[in-house]
Deep mutational scan, measured.
Amino acid sequence: RPMNAFMVWARIHRPALAKANPAANNAEISVQLGLEWNKLSEEQKKPYYDEAQKIKE
């Protein structure tokens, strides 16, 4: 299954978030990633939607 825009973004940002929160488990990191993603504007998300579309094609 191809990655969606959030997954493209999260793949880039997960390592830094995990390093900054070494005690957090994957579920907690995923929740935090979701919160951070939701704070982004549509303009900030656009490159990730574009990349996800390329992956689908």
Results as ranks from 00 to 15, higher is better:
Tyr49Gly: 03
Ala23Tyr: 14
Lys56Glu: 11
Ala27Cys: 12
Leu40Cys: 02
Gln32Gly: 03
Met3Ala: 09
Arg11Ala: 14
Met3Pro: 12
Phe6Ser: 00
Arg1Gly: 11
Gln32Cys: 09
Arg1Met: 13
Lys19Pro: 01
Pro47Asn: 03
Lys39Trp: 04
Gln53Cys: 06
Gln53Ser: 10
Val8Asn: 03
Gln44Trp: 03
Ala20Asn: 08
Ala52Met: 05
Ala27Val: 09
Lys19Ile: 08
Phe6Lys: 01
Ser30Gln: 12
Pro2Met: 12
Ala24Leu: 15
Gln44Ser: 07
Gly34Ala: 15
Met7Asp: 13
Ala18Asp: 03
Tyr49Phe: 11
Val8Lys: 03
Lys46Val: 05
Glu57Ile: 09
Trp9Leu: 00
Gly34Met: 15
Ala5His: 01
Arg11Pro: 02
Gln44Tyr: 05
Pro2Gly: 11
Arg1Trp: 14
Met7Thr: 07
Asn4Gly: 07
Pro2Leu: 14
Asn25Arg: 05
Ile55Gln: 10
Val8Met: 09
Lys56Trp: 15
Ala24Tyr: 12
Tyr48Asp: 00
Arg11Gly: 07
Ala24Asn: 04
Asn21Ser: 06
Glu36Val: 10
Lys39Cys: 05
Leu40Ile: 03
Ile29Gln: 02
Lys54Ala: 10
Ala24Arg: 06
Arg14Asp: 01
Phe6Arg: 01
Leu40Ala: 01
Leu17Lys: 03
Arg1Thr: 12
Glu36Leu: 15
Glu57Asp: 12
Asn4Gln: 08
Lys54Ser: 07
Lys19Gln: 09
Ala27Arg: 13
Lys46Phe: 04
Trp9Lys: 00
Leu40His: 01
Pro15Val: 12
Ile29Arg: 02
Pro22Met: 03
Val31His: 13
Pro47Met: 06
Asn26His: 14
Ala16Phe: 13
Leu17Cys: 05
Leu17Tyr: 13
Ala24Gly: 03
Ala23Gln: 13
Ile55Gly: 05
Glu43Ile: 10
Glu36Gly: 04
Asp50Ser: 07
Trp9Phe: 15
Lys39Val: 05
Trp9Ile: 01
Ile29His: 02
Lys56Gln: 14
His13Asn: 09
Ala23Thr: 12
Lys39Ser: 07
Ile12Met: 10
Asn21Ile: 04
Ala52Thr: 03
Glu43Tyr: 08
Ala27Ile: 10
Glu43Val: 09
Met3Thr: 10
Ser41Cys: 03
Tyr48Cys: 03
Lys19Leu: 12
Gln53Ala: 14
Lys39Glu: 04
Asp50Ala: 12
Asn21His: 11
His13Lys: 08
Glu28Gly: 03
Ala20Arg: 10
Leu40Gln: 02
Tyr48Met: 01
Leu33Glu: 01
Lys19Met: 11
Asn4Leu: 14
Lys56Cys: 13
Leu33Asn: 00
Ile55Asp: 06
Lys19Glu: 08
Tyr48Phe: 10
Val8Glu: 03
Ala10Glu: 08
Met7Ile: 10
Leu17Met: 11
Asn26Arg: 10
Pro2Ala: 12
Glu57Thr: 09
Asn21Tyr: 13
Leu40Lys: 02
Tyr49Gln: 05
Gln44Asn: 05
Leu17Ser: 02
Trp37Cys: 00
His13Gly: 02
Ile12Phe: 06
Glu42Cys: 14
Trp9Asp: 00
Leu33Trp: 01
Pro47Ser: 04
Ala20Trp: 05
Asn38Ser: 14
Lys45His: 01
Asp50Trp: 09
Arg14Phe: 13
Glu36Cys: 11
Ala23Val: 06
Glu43His: 08
Lys39Phe: 04
Gln32Asp: 02
Val8Ala: 05
Ala20Tyr: 04
Lys39Gly: 05
Lys45Met: 03
Asn25Ser: 15
Glu36Asn: 07
Ala27Glu: 12
Glu43Ala: 13
Ala5Trp: 02
Lys54Gly: 06
Glu28Ala: 09
Asn26Val: 09
Val8His: 04
Met7His: 07
Pro22Arg: 04
Lys19Arg: 11
Gln44Leu: 07
Leu33Ile: 03
Leu40Val: 02
Ala16Cys: 13
Asn4Ile: 11
Lys45Asn: 01
Pro47Gln: 05
Tyr48Asn: 02
Trp37Lys: 00
Ala23Arg: 13
Glu42Lys: 14
Asn26Ser: 12
Met3Phe: 12
Lys45Glu: 01
Ala27Trp: 14
Gln44Thr: 04
Pro15Tyr: 13
Glu43Thr: 08
Asn4Asp: 12
Phe6Cys: 04
Ala18Gly: 04
Lys56Arg: 13
Glu57Ala: 09
Ile29Glu: 01
Arg11Ser: 11
Ile55Cys: 07
Gln53Met: 11
Val31Ile: 13
Ile29Pro: 00
His13Phe: 12
Lys45Trp: 02
Lys39Arg: 10
Leu35His: 08
Gln32Tyr: 10
Ala52Lys: 02
Glu43Cys: 05
Asn26Glu: 14
Ala10Thr: 04
Ala10Tyr: 07
Phe6Asn: 00
Asn26Thr: 11
Glu51Ala: 13
Pro47Asp: 03
Gln53Val: 09
Lys46Ser: 05
Ala52Asp: 02
Val8Gly: 01
Pro22Leu: 04
Lys46Tyr: 04
Leu40Gly: 00
Glu28Gln: 10
Met3Ile: 14
Ser30Trp: 15
Ala20Lys: 10
Leu35Asp: 05
Glu43Phe: 09
His13Tyr: 11
Tyr48Leu: 01
Pro47Tyr: 10
Arg11Met: 13
Ala52Gln: 03
Pro22Phe: 02
Leu33Phe: 01
Ala5Asn: 00
Ala16Val: 14
Asn4Ser: 15
Glu28Val: 05
Glu43Gln: 11
Ile29Asp: 01
Lys19Val: 07
Ala52Arg: 02
Asn25Pro: 06
Ala23Lys: 13
Arg14Tyr: 14
Tyr49Lys: 06
Ala23Glu: 12
Glu42Val: 12
Trp37Ser: 00
Ala23His: 14
Leu17Asp: 02
Ala23Met: 14
Pro22Asn: 03
Ala23Phe: 14
Asp50Gly: 04
Asn4Met: 12
Ala18Trp: 07
Glu57Pro: 08
Ala20Cys: 05
Ala20Thr: 06
Tyr49Val: 07
Ala27Asn: 10
Glu42Arg: 13
Glu42Gly: 05
Met7Ala: 08
Arg1Tyr: 13
Ile29Gly: 01
Gln44Asp: 11
Lys39Ile: 04
Ala5Gln: 01
Trp37His: 00
Ala18Ser: 11
Met3Trp: 12
Ala10Leu: 08
His13Cys: 06
Lys56Asp: 08
Trp9His: 01
Gln53Asp: 11
Tyr49Asp: 03
Glu51Ser: 06
Leu17Trp: 08
Ala27Asp: 12
Ser41Tyr: 02
Asp50Leu: 13
Phe6Leu: 02
Asn26Cys: 11
Glu51Asn: 04
Val31Gly: 03
Asn38Asp: 10
Trp37Asn: 00
Gln32Ile: 15
Glu28Pro: 02
Glu51Lys: 11
Lys46Glu: 04
Trp37Leu: 00
Leu35Cys: 05
Leu35Lys: 10
Arg14Cys: 11
Asn4Lys: 06
Asn21Cys: 08
Trp9Met: 01
Glu28Arg: 05
Met7Phe: 12
Gly34Ser: 14
Lys54Thr: 08
Val8Leu: 15
Ala5Ser: 02
Glu43Pro: 06
Glu36His: 08
Glu51Thr: 09
Leu17Arg: 03
Asn21Gln: 06
Arg14Asn: 02
Trp9Cys: 02
Glu51Leu: 15
Arg11Glu: 14
Ala18Pro: 01
Asn26Ala: 13
Met7Asn: 07
Gln32Glu: 05
Val8Phe: 12
Ala10Trp: 06
Asn21Glu: 03
Lys45Arg: 10
Ile29Tyr: 02
Ile55Pro: 04
Trp9Asn: 00
Glu28Thr: 08
Ala23Gly: 14
Lys54Asp: 05
Ile12Tyr: 10
Val8Trp: 06
Ala16Ile: 15
Asn4Arg: 06
Pro2Trp: 15
Lys46Asp: 02
Ser30Gly: 08
Glu57Ser: 09
Ile29Val: 05
Lys45Asp: 00
Leu35Met: 10
Leu33Ser: 00
Trp9Gln: 00
Lys45Ala: 02
Glu51Tyr: 13
Leu17Gln: 03
Glu51Pro: 02
Asn21Lys: 04
Gln53Thr: 08
Ala52Pro: 02
Pro2Cys: 15
Ala20Met: 10
Ile12Glu: 09
Val31Ser: 07
Asn26Trp: 15
Glu42Ala: 14
Glu42Phe: 15
Ala23Leu: 14
Ala10Val: 09
Ala24His: 06
Lys39Pro: 00
